[in-house]
Amino acid sequence: MRRPLGYPLLLLLMPLLLSVVPGCQTVAVVTSAGADIAAGTGVITRNQAESIKKSSQAAGKAFEEFTPENEYYIGRTIAANILSKYKAYQNMGPNQYINLIGQTVAQASDKPETFKGYHFLIMDTDEINAFATPGGLILVSRGLLRCCKSEDALAAVLAHEIGHVQLGHGMGAIRGSRYTSLGKIAGVELAKNLGGAQLAQAAEIFDGTVGDIMKNMVDNGYQSSQEYDADKAAVTILKRVGYNPTALKDMLEQMDRQLGANSGGFGKTHPKPHDRLQNIEPLLKGLGSSKETSARKARFSKVMRGV
């Protein structure tokens, strides 16, 4: 049977489209698709495809991509909503310590630069939980910190959350209709500040956007595959910095033991530690067990004692 001509014809046209269409938006979309196709056929590796997609996205100025500043304001509002549900843990010693680890580790991620950087705060609850908002405001519970028996394990928890930010999991929950509605407002010639009716419209879309992410992050939880991807990202980040990635395994085993009456929403929204362990096991092959220097041990137990 003869195949229809459409497919090869489209392929022939692709380079032509690239050279003729001047919009960066189109270029970004076409190159992402091209990279995916090429990787799918085994012509280039998946890593190469990702890097092409990343650079084409970075170079593109499509409105579909929220700017880091947009992400920052979305993230702030989500963090404020979460902190209306969970109180902040006001002991600044441990908060400063997790920022030393977290902000240092974030610099080794694939997305070290966000609009106003990564910041970490402890939530005063026994529940085992954590939230990574777009833009890099990251909230972790005392319950989760108690699953960490070393600085390396703590770094693993924070690196996992940084992984969610790096992979855009929060922003991925935004419904397509929000972009369409925003595009309509943005299309109108506007002054620097939005006027009355447009401001009200934009504020409404903002509410919806925040709601989309909250629903996914807090109520339903990310997909299991997204949790596994964040674990993988964490292993890479830890390796780059010099923390021992097997600490992620130690932490998950500890969590498995502690997850019980105190699990709160976490048990429902996350895959079981056992399944996450299976997922990271191949990445940890050949790495020694988690050993720490005495300096690291000393500062960890000194700061985290009361948490």
Binding site: G183, A186, L190, L194, A202, A203
Partner: peptide
């Protein structure tokens, strides 16, 4: 800054929207 200099996203979710929220 004239309106034309700002990209669509720069007019999007900014401090002004947070204030409204």
């Amino acid at each position: 800054v004239s309106a034309g200099e700002l990209s669509a996203a720069e007019k999007g979710f900014t401090e002004q929207i947070e204030q409204a929220y």
